[in-house]
Amino acid sequence: MKHLLSTRDLDRDTAIQLLDIAEDMAATQQREVKKLPTLRGKTVVNLFFEDSTRTRISFEAAAKRLSADVINFSAKGSSVSKGESLQDTAQTLEAIGADVIVIRHGSSGAPKVLAESGWIAASVLNAGDGTHEHPTQALLDAFTLRRRIHGDASRGAALDGITVLIVGDILHSRVARSNVWLLSTLGAEVTLVGPPTLIPHGIDGWPVTVAFDLDAAIADTDPDAVMMLRVQTERMHDAYFPSTREYASLWGLTAARFAALPERAVVMHPGPMNRGFEIASVAADSARSTVREQVANGVSTRMAALYLTATGGAA
């Protein structure tokens, strides 16, 4: 695997292989010496055109645990603000010796352009592009879910027959898109729930069910997992819903809705959370919440993604 650009074109075997390698990486994180020599001498550049805390730190930790050299680059305070193009920036990074470029960009498709334009020979990992995809987030979500469901028997397992509700701002969410493709590839049944204004056009082609009433969806699907999405107000230039209070009461995971969930259901959130808005604290801090697990698993999953893209040469 040379690049990791989306989960849509990830086949089932590759997805399971990635999750299995993440299991091995997670096992090494329990040791006294957490560092592996695997990517010694390789350079990983985190090229971030958009703000990020957890994804960038997670990639940085993952690369360092594999002994790679890490260069962090954020567009603010760089030559990008002087008008440098993506091509020139990428070629500069390659001239410095980048073997892997982890890119987050506000425009959908920017990582694909970088990977397929022939500008650079480095591997490209998509760390979130516009409203398109965020594949490593979906992989860590699937990894977290698989561990919660299969426990120690996770290796080699998929998510067949698991029902997942993805709730909230589907329209702006690359996390939702990546999860839709990955979870359905792994055999899960996905239902998207949100206000009609935040459900994207052209959703008919997605392998999902769409619902607008969260209470009814919980009752109908009896979900194994509820994934709450952050309402991305920074991308909202229109009034998508009347008020935050109305959104919270209709599509938020309130204490009452949390109590109505099946006993086995886990609560997921990619972070950062807007407490009291899309998720109530009682749900976010409960034992069934996987929010902190997701962050920890993010490092193992990204180690697996870096390993798969940065090794394996020409053949």
Binding site: M1, Q17, D20, I21, E23, D24, A27, T28, L36, P37, T38, L66, R155, Y307, L308, T311, G312, G313, A315
Partner: peptide, 18 residues
């Protein structure tokens, strides 16, 4: 697997559990 010196020269190997 993670300690090999030929990772860049061969198709990617899947590690096994330790």
């Amino acid at each position: 697997t993670m300690y090999r010196d030929d990772l860049a020269r061969h198709p990617t190997r899947s590690p096994s559990p330790t």
